[in-house]
Design a protein around this nucleic acid. Structure first.
Lengths: 175, 175
DNA sequence: ATATGTCTTGCAACTCGTTGCATAGGTCGG
DNA sequence: CCGACCTATGCAACGAGTTGCAAGACATAT
């Protein structure tokens, strides 16, 4: 029930088409959210039907038309209501942690290999996030408002990758 | 598609009934997994039908009978195969991070309040995990095999809560 | 002009998970 | 005995999310 809100946030930052949103969800917003294009299209349609969004067809040169969505006044209210509502502490699910716990019931070396692969992947992401911080936020102390929020969430992405690399390193070192 | 495997792990550690599993999933295994009892009952039934589990009805004093499930030989094979299979890096979803990013589109103070609540909750969990480490693993260096795995996953729980408390503190301090 | 590719949107079927309710056995207090 | 409550299992309906496929618009190359 929260993809709607993720889309409202993304469209509030900048109006976009379904495919553009799908791409954006693989990037900045994607640190803490993810969605496939089908899911996005379906929900966009429902939100438009509910009057939360306005659409306009945009002709493009060399490409098919696109439908650009923007947040309506009603959508703004939905967004504000959601922001004010309590947020449950989300339950976690990590298949990898489950495998780490169960390693002795199968091929322990195979499990180690997967943890090693994930460690490399999270190290790559961590480096990418660090680069984003350097390039996009050279002077964090000067930030305010939405820019500061986005920077601090990116910091959360950095910290999350540090959690993964730290824990996986600890496991691989001791087990 | 992985709740099956979580149940195999839990039942491999110790045979149990549906309700006992539901309770266990709120505790140790629950650091990195979660499931409701309905979901558990349904999947247990399917797994039994697939021959992954064996059942025996256990009479209890002062309570209704329970159906105690255990992993069959076929279930052992499924478990081993799963442990050897690649694990995709799981996409993350955090409604709270989304709200942090969107704070300027609504009542910023209300968002801060939620982050503060979550910070308190994660500090509580962190303290509980630390206590578990002290009580259950007084001498980590002596651990091996499945015990060591369980300890290291609990360490992951500690590190994850440290991520949350660290990030939320940073956000609240600067935004 | 035809084939190939890619951008954009979308449908249909399926699995997974949650919520609300139901049923049955058993305890304990009044 | 009756009502309230706990344990244990389960059904039905719904919503959310994924996967596979399709179709139309436009571009480029052969």
């Amino acid at each position: 029930m929260a993809l709607e809100h993720a889309l409202l946030v993304a469209l509030r930052e900048r109006p976009a088409s379904g495919l553009e949103l799908a791409r954006r969800f693989d990037k900045s917003i994607g640190f803490f959210w993810h969605a496939t294009h089908q899911q996005i299209y379906r929900v966009l349609g429902r939100m438009e039907g509910d009057g939360w969004l306005t659409v306009r067809t945009v002709a493009q040169t060399g490409r098919p038309d696109k439908k650009e969505y923007a947040v309506s006044a009603a959508g703004e209210r939905v967004l504000a209501d959601w922001l004010a509502a309590d947020t449950p502490v989300e339950p976690l699910r990590s298949e990898l942690a489950l495998k780490a716990r169960a390693a002795s019931y199968g091929d322990r070396e195979a499990v180690r290999r997967q943890l090693t692969d994930h460690l490399a992947e999270h190290e790559t992401r961590l480096a990418a996030y660090h680069q984003m911080v350097e390039e996009q936020y050279p002077d964090p102390h000067a930030l305010t408002g939405a820019d500061l929020d986005r920077y601090l969430v990116l910091r959360g992405g950095v910290r999350l990758e540090e959690f993964w690399t730290g824990w996986l390193s600890e496991y691989l070192e001791h087990a």
